[in-house]
Protein backbone atom coordinates (compact mmCIF):
# COMPACT_ATOMS: atom_id res chain seq x y z
CA UNK A 1 0.00 0.00 0.00
CA UNK A 2 2.76 2.33 1.01
CA UNK A 3 4.59 1.59 -2.18
CA UNK A 4 1.46 2.13 -4.19
CA UNK A 5 0.89 5.57 -2.73
CA UNK A 6 4.51 6.40 -3.35
CA UNK A 7 4.05 5.53 -7.00
CA UNK A 8 0.91 7.61 -7.17
CA UNK A 9 2.74 10.63 -5.81
CA UNK A 10 5.67 10.15 -8.16
CA UNK A 11 3.32 9.69 -11.07
CA UNK A 12 1.34 12.77 -10.20
CA UNK A 13 4.39 14.96 -9.88
CA UNK A 14 5.70 13.75 -13.20
CA UNK A 15 2.22 14.23 -14.65
CA UNK A 16 2.11 17.78 -13.32
CA UNK A 17 5.30 18.61 -15.17
CA UNK A 18 3.82 17.18 -18.36
CA UNK A 19 0.70 19.20 -17.64
CA UNK A 20 2.61 22.49 -17.53
CA UNK A 21 4.06 21.73 -20.94
CA UNK A 22 0.87 20.24 -22.39
CA UNK A 23 -1.04 23.40 -21.45
CA UNK A 24 1.25 25.39 -23.74
CA UNK A 25 0.63 23.07 -26.66
CA UNK A 26 -3.08 23.18 -26.17
CA UNK A 27 -3.27 26.97 -25.69
CA UNK A 28 -1.26 27.70 -28.80
CA UNK A 29 -3.17 25.10 -30.77
CA UNK A 30 -6.35 26.81 -29.60
CA UNK A 31 -5.49 30.26 -30.90
CA UNK A 32 -3.43 29.39 -33.98
CA UNK A 33 -4.36 25.77 -34.84
CA UNK A 34 -0.60 25.25 -34.78
CA UNK A 35 1.30 22.40 -33.21
CA UNK A 36 4.17 24.40 -31.84
CA UNK A 37 7.00 21.92 -32.18
CA UNK A 38 9.41 24.39 -30.65
CA UNK A 39 7.53 24.25 -27.37
CA UNK A 40 9.58 21.38 -25.91
CA UNK A 41 12.72 23.47 -26.39
CA UNK A 42 11.27 26.09 -24.05
CA UNK A 43 11.49 23.48 -21.31
CA UNK A 44 15.14 22.90 -22.12
CA UNK A 45 15.88 26.60 -22.10
CA UNK A 46 14.01 27.01 -18.86
CA UNK A 47 16.13 24.28 -17.29
CA UNK A 48 19.39 25.85 -18.51
CA UNK A 49 18.46 29.37 -17.57
CA UNK A 50 17.31 28.16 -14.15
CA UNK A 51 20.60 26.33 -13.70
CA UNK A 52 22.76 29.33 -14.62
CA UNK A 53 20.62 31.63 -12.52
CA UNK A 54 20.78 29.40 -9.46
CA UNK A 55 24.52 28.87 -9.87
CA UNK A 56 25.21 32.53 -10.38
CA UNK A 57 23.39 33.52 -7.21
CA UNK A 58 24.70 30.46 -5.40
CA UNK A 59 21.16 29.48 -4.44
CA UNK A 60 22.08 25.83 -3.87
CA UNK A 61 24.29 26.76 -0.93
CA UNK A 62 21.24 27.48 1.15
CA UNK A 63 18.53 25.30 -0.31
CA UNK A 64 15.07 26.53 0.41
CA UNK A 65 11.78 27.49 -1.03
CA UNK A 66 12.65 31.17 -1.51
CA UNK A 67 15.63 30.41 -3.74
CA UNK A 68 13.50 28.04 -5.75
CA UNK A 69 10.70 30.52 -6.19
CA UNK A 70 13.15 33.20 -7.23
CA UNK A 71 14.65 30.89 -9.85
CA UNK A 72 11.21 29.92 -11.02
CA UNK A 73 10.01 33.49 -11.46
CA UNK A 74 13.17 34.63 -13.23
CA UNK A 75 13.04 31.63 -15.55
CA UNK A 76 9.39 32.16 -16.38
CA UNK A 77 10.08 35.77 -17.29
CA UNK A 78 12.97 34.81 -19.54
CA UNK A 79 11.23 31.94 -21.34
CA UNK A 80 8.10 34.09 -21.58
CA UNK A 81 10.18 36.66 -23.47
CA UNK A 82 11.63 33.98 -25.71
CA UNK A 83 8.10 32.77 -26.44
CA UNK A 84 7.10 36.31 -27.32
CA UNK A 85 10.01 36.57 -29.76
CA UNK A 86 9.25 33.22 -31.36
CA UNK A 87 5.68 34.26 -32.07
CA UNK A 88 6.63 37.73 -33.24
CA UNK A 89 9.53 36.81 -35.50
CA UNK A 90 8.80 33.26 -36.61
CA UNK A 91 5.03 32.82 -36.71
CA UNK A 92 3.43 36.24 -37.04
CA UNK A 93 5.02 37.00 -40.42
CA UNK A 94 3.33 33.83 -41.69
CA UNK A 95 -0.12 34.66 -40.49
CA UNK A 96 -1.58 34.61 -43.99
CA UNK A 97 0.51 31.70 -45.21
CA UNK A 98 -0.83 28.13 -45.47
CA UNK A 99 -0.84 26.07 -42.27
CA UNK A 100 1.87 23.76 -43.54
CA UNK A 101 4.37 26.63 -43.76
CA UNK A 102 3.70 27.41 -40.14
CA UNK A 103 4.23 23.80 -39.18
CA UNK A 104 7.52 23.57 -41.05
CA UNK A 105 8.65 26.80 -39.42
CA UNK A 106 7.83 25.31 -36.04
CA UNK A 107 10.04 22.31 -36.77
CA UNK A 108 12.75 24.70 -37.93
CA UNK A 109 12.56 26.80 -34.77
CA UNK A 110 12.74 23.63 -32.71
CA UNK A 111 15.91 22.50 -34.49
CA UNK A 112 17.38 25.98 -34.24
CA UNK A 113 16.96 25.91 -30.48
CA UNK A 114 18.35 22.39 -30.17
CA UNK A 115 21.47 23.23 -32.11
CA UNK A 116 22.07 26.62 -30.61
CA UNK A 117 21.56 24.94 -27.25
CA UNK A 118 24.36 22.52 -28.05
CA UNK A 119 26.50 25.38 -29.28
CA UNK A 120 25.94 27.64 -26.31
CA UNK A 121 25.53 25.20 -23.43
CA UNK A 122 27.71 22.42 -24.82
CA UNK A 123 26.32 19.03 -25.73
CA UNK A 124 27.53 17.28 -22.58
CA UNK A 125 24.88 16.97 -19.87
CA UNK A 126 25.13 19.35 -16.93
CA UNK A 127 23.71 19.14 -13.45
CA UNK A 128 20.89 21.21 -12.13
CA UNK A 129 21.67 22.55 -8.65
CA UNK A 130 19.77 21.08 -5.77
CA UNK A 131 17.49 23.89 -4.72
CA UNK A 132 15.32 21.95 -2.29
CA UNK A 133 16.48 20.08 0.77
CA UNK A 134 16.30 16.39 0.16
CA UNK A 135 15.72 14.98 3.60
CA UNK A 136 13.52 11.94 3.50
CA UNK A 137 12.95 11.78 7.24
CA UNK A 138 11.28 15.12 7.56
CA UNK A 139 8.01 14.32 5.82
CA UNK A 140 6.31 11.36 7.39
CA UNK A 141 2.73 10.53 8.14
CA UNK A 142 2.56 7.23 9.98
CA UNK A 143 4.11 4.64 7.72
CA UNK A 144 4.02 6.94 4.73
CA UNK A 145 7.11 8.76 3.62
CA UNK A 146 6.90 11.75 1.41
CA UNK A 147 9.72 12.90 -0.71
CA UNK A 148 9.77 16.67 -0.10
CA UNK A 149 11.07 17.27 -3.58
CA UNK A 150 8.14 15.48 -5.16
CA UNK A 151 5.68 17.31 -2.95
CA UNK A 152 7.27 20.66 -3.77
CA UNK A 153 7.12 19.98 -7.48
CA UNK A 154 3.54 18.82 -7.19
CA UNK A 155 2.59 21.89 -5.18
CA UNK A 156 4.22 24.39 -7.54
CA UNK A 157 2.78 22.76 -10.65
CA UNK A 158 -0.66 22.69 -9.06
CA UNK A 159 -0.52 26.34 -8.11
CA UNK A 160 0.59 27.32 -11.61
CA UNK A 161 -2.16 25.25 -13.18
CA UNK A 162 -4.78 26.83 -10.96
CA UNK A 163 -3.46 30.32 -11.71
CA UNK A 164 -3.62 29.56 -15.40
CA UNK A 165 -7.14 28.16 -15.21
CA UNK A 166 -8.19 31.30 -13.36
CA UNK A 167 -6.57 33.47 -15.99
CA UNK A 168 -8.30 31.64 -18.82
CA UNK A 169 -11.72 31.14 -17.28
CA UNK A 170 -12.18 34.08 -14.94
CA UNK A 171 -10.52 37.12 -16.48
CA UNK A 172 -11.29 39.43 -19.36
CA UNK A 173 -8.04 38.47 -21.04
CA UNK A 174 -8.94 34.82 -20.73
CA UNK A 175 -12.33 35.42 -22.29
CA UNK A 176 -10.51 37.14 -25.14
CA UNK A 177 -8.28 34.09 -25.52
CA UNK A 178 -11.18 31.72 -25.65
CA UNK A 179 -12.95 33.95 -28.14
CA UNK A 180 -9.89 34.06 -30.41
CA UNK A 181 -9.50 30.34 -30.10
CA UNK A 182 -13.09 29.76 -31.15
CA UNK A 183 -12.83 32.06 -34.14
CA UNK A 184 -10.24 34.71 -34.63
CA UNK A 185 -12.11 36.72 -37.27
CA UNK A 186 -15.21 36.81 -35.16
CA UNK A 187 -13.22 38.00 -32.17
CA UNK A 188 -11.77 40.85 -34.24
CA UNK A 189 -15.27 41.96 -35.19
CA UNK A 190 -15.91 42.65 -31.51
CA UNK A 191 -12.73 44.65 -31.19
CA UNK A 192 -10.70 41.94 -29.48
CA UNK A 193 -7.07 42.45 -30.53
CA UNK A 194 -6.40 38.95 -31.82
CA UNK A 195 -2.72 39.57 -32.53
CA UNK A 196 -2.05 40.68 -28.96
CA UNK A 197 -4.06 37.80 -27.57
CA UNK A 198 -2.05 35.31 -29.62
CA UNK A 199 1.20 36.91 -28.55
CA UNK A 200 0.14 36.71 -24.91
CA UNK A 201 -0.81 33.08 -25.34
CA UNK A 202 2.72 32.29 -26.47
CA UNK A 203 4.17 34.19 -23.53
CA UNK A 204 2.01 32.32 -21.05
CA UNK A 205 2.70 28.95 -22.67
CA UNK A 206 6.44 29.56 -22.76
CA UNK A 207 6.52 30.79 -19.17
CA UNK A 208 4.82 27.61 -18.00
CA UNK A 209 7.23 25.53 -20.07
CA UNK A 210 10.11 27.40 -18.45
CA UNK A 211 8.69 26.59 -15.03
CA UNK A 212 8.43 22.97 -16.12
CA UNK A 213 12.09 23.12 -17.10
CA UNK A 214 13.09 24.16 -13.59
CA UNK A 215 10.92 21.46 -12.05
CA UNK A 216 12.36 18.82 -14.36
CA UNK A 217 15.83 20.00 -13.35
CA UNK A 218 14.92 19.47 -9.72
CA UNK A 219 13.59 15.96 -10.21
CA UNK A 220 15.96 14.74 -12.92
CA UNK A 221 19.02 16.95 -12.42
CA UNK A 222 20.88 15.75 -15.50
CA UNK A 223 19.99 18.23 -18.21
CA UNK A 224 21.12 18.41 -21.82
CA UNK A 225 20.25 20.50 -24.88
CA UNK A 226 18.10 17.75 -26.40
CA UNK A 227 16.05 17.06 -23.28
CA UNK A 228 13.18 19.14 -24.62
CA UNK A 229 12.33 16.95 -27.55
CA UNK A 230 11.18 13.77 -25.81
CA UNK A 231 9.59 15.69 -22.98
CA UNK A 232 7.87 17.96 -25.45
CA UNK A 233 6.68 15.02 -27.50
CA UNK A 234 5.23 13.25 -24.49
CA UNK A 235 3.48 16.39 -23.30
CA UNK A 236 2.10 16.84 -26.76
CA UNK A 237 0.80 13.29 -26.57
CA UNK A 238 -0.80 14.19 -23.25
CA UNK A 239 -2.48 17.21 -24.84
CA UNK A 240 -3.79 15.10 -27.71
CA UNK A 241 -5.00 12.38 -25.37
CA UNK A 242 -6.92 14.96 -23.36
CA UNK A 243 -8.32 16.53 -26.51
CA UNK A 244 -6.09 19.19 -28.02
CA UNK A 245 -7.43 22.68 -27.53
CA UNK A 246 -9.06 21.68 -24.25
CA UNK A 247 -7.29 22.94 -21.16
CA UNK A 248 -8.67 20.53 -18.60
CA UNK A 249 -8.09 17.78 -21.13
CA UNK A 250 -4.40 18.65 -21.29
CA UNK A 251 -4.08 18.44 -17.51
CA UNK A 252 -6.03 15.20 -17.35
CA UNK A 253 -4.05 13.63 -20.18
CA UNK A 254 -0.77 14.69 -18.56
CA UNK A 255 -1.67 13.26 -15.16
CA UNK A 256 -2.77 9.98 -16.72
CA UNK A 257 0.43 9.80 -18.70
CA UNK A 258 2.58 10.54 -15.64
CA UNK A 259 0.77 7.89 -13.62
CA UNK A 260 0.93 5.22 -16.27
CA UNK A 261 4.60 5.85 -16.84
CA UNK A 262 5.30 5.56 -13.15
CA UNK A 263 3.31 2.36 -12.83
CA UNK A 264 5.05 0.82 -15.80
CA UNK A 265 8.40 1.67 -14.25
CA UNK A 266 7.33 0.49 -10.80
CA UNK A 267 5.50 -2.71 -11.62
CA UNK A 268 6.50 -3.77 -15.13
CA UNK A 269 9.77 -2.87 -16.72
CA UNK A 270 11.55 0.50 -16.73
CA UNK A 271 12.63 -0.03 -20.32
CA UNK A 272 9.09 0.44 -21.50
CA UNK A 273 8.86 3.83 -19.89
CA UNK A 274 8.93 5.88 -23.08
CA UNK A 275 6.99 3.42 -25.17
CA UNK A 276 4.06 3.72 -22.79
CA UNK A 277 3.37 7.30 -23.84
CA UNK A 278 2.81 6.30 -27.39
CA UNK A 279 0.92 3.11 -26.62
CA UNK A 280 -1.26 5.26 -24.43
CA UNK A 281 -1.88 7.71 -27.25
CA UNK A 282 -2.85 5.02 -29.70
CA UNK A 283 -5.21 3.24 -27.31
CA UNK A 284 -7.01 6.38 -26.22
CA UNK A 285 -7.32 7.74 -29.72
CA UNK A 286 -8.70 4.47 -31.02
CA UNK A 287 -11.31 4.66 -28.34
CA UNK A 288 -11.97 8.41 -28.54
CA UNK A 289 -10.58 9.93 -31.72
CA UNK A 290 -10.87 13.51 -30.52
CA UNK A 291 -9.33 12.85 -27.11
CA UNK A 292 -10.82 12.34 -23.68
CA UNK A 293 -12.43 15.75 -23.30
CA UNK A 294 -12.24 16.84 -26.90
CA UNK A 295 -15.33 17.48 -28.93
CA UNK A 296 -15.63 17.15 -32.67
CA UNK A 297 -15.73 20.85 -33.08
CA UNK A 298 -17.40 22.25 -36.14
CA UNK A 299 -14.66 24.22 -37.81
CA UNK A 300 -15.19 27.92 -38.50
CA UNK A 301 -18.88 28.59 -38.87
Amino acid sequence: MNEFIQHVINGLSLGCIYALVAIGYTLVFGVLSLINFAHGEMVMMGAYFGMYFAKHFKLAEEPGISGLLLTLVATMIVTGCIGWCVEKFAYRPLKNAPRINLLITAVGVSLLFQFSGQLIFGSAPQFFPQLVEFNLDTWKIGELQFNPLQITVLGIALVLTVVLQTLVFKTRTGRGMRAVSFNRDLASLLGIPATRVISLTFVVGAALAGAAGVLVGLVYPKIDPLMGSLLGLKSFVAAVVGGIGNLSGAVLGALLLGLSEEFVVGYLAPTYRDAIAFAFLIIILLWRPSGLLGVNRIEKV
Partner: peptide, 23 residues
Protein backbone atom coordinates in the same frame (compact mmCIF):
# COMPACT_ATOMS: atom_id res chain seq x y z
CA UNK B 1 -7.72 47.13 -38.63
CA UNK B 2 -10.90 45.20 -37.96
CA UNK B 3 -10.44 45.66 -34.21
CA UNK B 4 -9.87 49.37 -34.56
CA UNK B 5 -13.03 49.71 -36.65
CA UNK B 6 -14.97 47.99 -33.90
CA UNK B 7 -13.47 50.43 -31.42
CA UNK B 8 -14.54 53.25 -33.71
CA UNK B 9 -18.11 52.01 -33.33
CA UNK B 10 -18.59 49.85 -36.42
CA UNK B 11 -20.18 46.65 -35.16
CA UNK B 12 -20.88 43.82 -37.58
CA UNK B 13 -23.27 40.99 -36.78
CA UNK B 14 -22.13 38.52 -39.42
CA UNK B 15 -24.10 36.13 -41.57
CA UNK B 16 -24.80 33.01 -39.50
CA UNK B 17 -24.82 35.05 -36.27
CA UNK B 18 -21.26 34.60 -35.15
CA UNK B 19 -21.89 33.37 -31.66
CA UNK B 20 -19.03 31.95 -29.60
CA UNK B 21 -20.56 28.52 -29.17
CA UNK B 22 -17.89 27.50 -26.67
CA UNK B 23 -18.80 30.31 -24.26
Amino acid sequence: STEARARAGMIHVPEGRGIFLNL
